[in-house]
Computed example of a mutant assay.
Amino acid sequence: MDSRVRHITKSITWRAIATATTLTVAAYIQGGISGSQLGLLAVLDVVIKLLLYYFHERFWFNLKANISPRTRHIIKAFTWRAIAGLTTFILVVWIFNESQGTLEKAGWIAIVETILKMMFYYGHEEVWYRINLGLDNRKINNQYD
């Protein structure tokens, strides 16, 4: 099976967890969010980050570095959180630009979701490390997702 199937599936599962977290944190901190604002945040969050995550996965799959799985998971978590946190901040500022204190709230949303998602992402990586979907030859080729 092609590793791209793995990365697409992995991207979708992470995006579901991450978008639910973003929407929950944004609704709690921002308060008074209209349904259209929340819907726009959800759609843009899914589309933009799904694409970014896919390319992040492809980069890490093709990286030929000899590092332990736990270290790799931690590094991947930090690099992804930097990309995703900045994306969330930009989306929140753009969508809620007419709200008072938008920059401060966007900052808090990005900080809180970063902390939560670092934990969730590490767990997601640990689970996917144990799943061989798309890695039929993992043991033979000594490949790692």
Rank of each mutant, 00 (worst) to 15 (best):
M1R: 10
S3A: 05
R4F: 13
V5C: 11
V5I: 15
V5G: 08
R6C: 01
H7E: 10
H7Y: 15
I8N: 08
I8A: 14
I8L: 15
I8P: 07
T9Y: 12
K10F: 13
I12D: 08
T13I: 10
T13R: 00
W14C: 06
A16I: 15
A18P: 03
T19A: 08
T19V: 15
T21F: 13
T22E: 10
T24N: 00
T24P: 01
T24Q: 01
A26Y: 08
A27D: 13
A27G: 06
Y28N: 04
G31H: 08
G32E: 09
I33P: 03
I33R: 06
I33A: 13
S34W: 05
S36H: 04
Q37R: 04
L38A: 15
G39S: 05
G39A: 12
A42V: 00
L44N: 07
L44I: 04
L44F: 13
D45P: 02
V46H: 07
I48L: 15
I48G: 03
K49T: 11
K49N: 15
L50H: 06
Y53A: 14
Y54M: 11
Y54S: 05
Y54T: 07
F55Q: 09
F55H: 14
F55A: 12
H56L: 08
H56Q: 05
E57T: 09
W60P: 10
F61M: 04
L63E: 12
K64N: 06
A65K: 07
N66M: 05
I67N: 00
I67F: 00
R70M: 08
R72I: 05
I74A: 15
K76Y: 07
K76W: 13
K76D: 10
A77G: 11
F78G: 11
R81C: 02
R81L: 05
A82N: 02
I83T: 06
A84Q: 08
A84V: 02
L86E: 03
T87Y: 04
T88Y: 02
T88E: 08
F89I: 05
V92H: 00
V92D: 06
V92T: 12
W94L: 10
I95Q: 03
F96H: 01
N97P: 01
E98T: 12
S99W: 04
S99L: 05
Q100M: 11
G101H: 07
T102H: 05
T102G: 04
L103N: 06
L103C: 01
E104N: 10
G107D: 12
G107T: 14
I111V: 15
E113M: 14
T114F: 15
I115Y: 08
L116Y: 09
L116N: 07
M119K: 00
F120Y: 08
Y121H: 09
H124V: 06
H124K: 06
E125Y: 11
V127A: 12
W128I: 11
Y129N: 11
Y129F: 14
R130P: 07
I131F: 12
N132K: 14
N132S: 10
G134H: 13
G134D: 14
L135P: 00
L135D: 03
N137H: 03
N137M: 05
R138I: 00
R138N: 02
K139M: 07
I140V: 12
I140S: 04
N141P: 02
N141C: 00
N142T: 07
N142Q: 14
Q143P: 01
Q143F: 14
D145G: 07
